[in-house]
């Protein structure tokens, strides 16, 4: 076997990483927009507390975040037990759990980016839409959302990139099970722990660089496309 050919296990790790990052990004998007909107526009008691909570994963050591997830979402944890018994959803040691860990880790980045773009929207435009007969929900969908789209895309890319690189929280919460929770980062880590694993680690490193670069370029291109539509 050629040193540049990827093994089946390596392919699985790549495919799993992409799936986990994509699911984490898409599933957290509605919550990200909602929380960003509440933080940008809301005036309520405990706003700083909510802001702090959202940003916590950015500051905490990833291992701590992963451990907290394990306590809360583990099969015997308060939320995990509920999900298991009432909905039959198990997160611990499953790839869905890896997606949850990645989503939590990327959430502050996503919220931050969307929040900044919401704060930049001219509220006079929303007011005008209201006087034309649009209900607040419709104003959000037809005026606010199109105007913040560049910020939303930037936030999604940041969250996706964070999810691709996530290691600490994931390995703490769902361990490093090949084929189930072993993502690209975890696979590279595993290679570095065994004798003669350098070639595999290098192969996956190059793949990781390629994926990250592609994501970055696509986001730049999308942002430019959207900006052209949104700006006069």
């Amino acid at each position: 076997m050629n040193a540049w050919t990827l093994s089946a296990e390596e392919w699985t790790a790549i495919e799993l990483s992409l799936r986990v990052a994509l699911v984490a990004t898409l599933a957290s998007l509605p919550f990200g927009v909602l929380i960003a909107y509440v933080l940008a526009r809301g005036r309520f008691w405990g706003k700083s507390l909510l802001n702090g909570l959202v940003h916590l994963p950015l500051i905490l050591p990833p291992v701590v975040t992963g451990y907290i997830l394990l306590i809360l979402f583990g099969r015997r944890g308060p939320i995990g037990a509920f999900l298991d018994q009432s909905l039959g959803i198990v997160l611990s040691f499953r790839w869905t759990g890896a997606a949850l860990a990645c989503a939590v880790m990327g959430f502050p980045l996503m919220v931050r980016s969307i929040r900044l773009s919401i704060e930049a929207v001219d509220q006079k435009l929303e007011e005008a839409a209201g006087t034309l007969g649009a209900s607040p929900l419709f104003v959000f969908l037809t005026v606010t959302l199109p105007l913040i789209l560049p910020g939303v895309i930037a936030g999604m890319i940041l969250a996706f990139a964070k999810a691709m690189g996530e290691f600490g929280a994931t390995i703490t919460f769902v361990s490093n099970i090949p084929g189930e929770t072993q993502t690209l980062s975890a696979a590279i880590y595993t290679f570095t722990q065994v004798p003669g694993g350098d070639a595999g680690a290098l192969r996956l490193t190059l793949i990781a660089i390629a994926i990250s670069m592609t994501a970055l370029l696509v986001s730049e291109w999308l942002a430019r496309l959207v900006a052209k539509r949104v700006q006069p």
Partner: peptide, 8 residues
């Protein structure tokens, strides 16, 4: 006072 047209 200002036109407030939707730029998008």
């Amino acid at each position: 006072q200002e036109p407030r047209l939707f730029p998008h």
